[in-house]
Simulated scan of single mutants.
Amino acid sequence: MPPPSGFRYQERADGTVLITHHGRAAGTLRGGRAARFLAEVTAGDPQLVMARWTGAYKHGNERTARSHPRNRR
């Protein structure tokens, strides 16, 4: 699976962080959560961090789903 892409974040003057994915709002963080996000996004891979914070990341069942009978070809 390719790494996540298309995420952007915008820090607003009131301390709110808006995360978008391909131009559409994916999440809004305020207060302490926004501060933790900003600290983490500067320390790691921004795309992966934003995907994890918005919930749009691998859930661990992709390999199991691939071998399910309806997904076999």
Rank of each mutant, 00 (worst) to 15 (best):
M1E: 10
M1R: 08
P2K: 07
P2C: 07
P2F: 04
P3H: 13
P3T: 10
S5Q: 15
G6N: 03
G6D: 02
G6C: 10
F7V: 03
R8G: 12
R8F: 12
Y9T: 01
Q10T: 15
Q10R: 14
E11S: 12
E11F: 05
E11P: 02
E11Y: 04
R12S: 09
R12G: 05
A13W: 06
A13V: 11
D14C: 03
D14Q: 02
D14M: 02
T16R: 13
V17S: 01
V17N: 00
V17T: 00
L18G: 01
L18A: 05
I19E: 01
I19L: 05
I19H: 01
T20H: 03
T20P: 00
H21M: 07
H22V: 07
H22Q: 14
H22S: 09
G23C: 13
R24F: 09
R24G: 07
A25K: 09
A25H: 06
A25M: 08
A26K: 04
A26M: 06
A26F: 02
A26D: 06
A26W: 02
G27M: 07
G27V: 03
G27A: 15
T28C: 03
T28R: 04
L29G: 00
L29H: 01
R30F: 06
R30T: 13
R30E: 15
G31P: 05
G31I: 11
G32V: 06
G32R: 11
R33S: 12
R33Q: 14
A34F: 03
A34L: 05
A34G: 06
A34D: 04
A35R: 11
A35E: 12
R36V: 10
R36M: 11
R36Y: 10
F37K: 01
L38F: 02
A39N: 13
A39Y: 05
E40N: 07
E40G: 04
E40L: 08
V41Y: 00
V41N: 00
V41R: 00
T42H: 10
T42M: 09
A43W: 02
D45W: 02
D45R: 04
D45S: 09
D45T: 05
P46Q: 01
P46S: 01
P46I: 00
Q47F: 06
L48N: 09
L48Y: 06
L48W: 05
L48K: 13
V49I: 12
V49R: 00
M50C: 12
M50T: 08
M50A: 07
A51Q: 08
A51V: 07
R52S: 03
W53H: 11
G55I: 04
G55S: 13
A56Q: 15
A56R: 14
A56I: 08
Y57Q: 14
K58Y: 10
H59I: 12
G60T: 08
N61D: 15
R63I: 13
T64I: 08
R66A: 15
R66Y: 11
R66W: 14
R66T: 09
S67W: 06
S67F: 14
S67C: 10
H68Q: 12
H68T: 13
H68Y: 11
H68L: 14
P69F: 04
P69D: 05
R70Y: 09
R70K: 12
N71C: 11
N71R: 13
N71E: 12
R72D: 12
R72S: 10
R72F: 09
R72T: 11
R73C: 08
R73E: 12
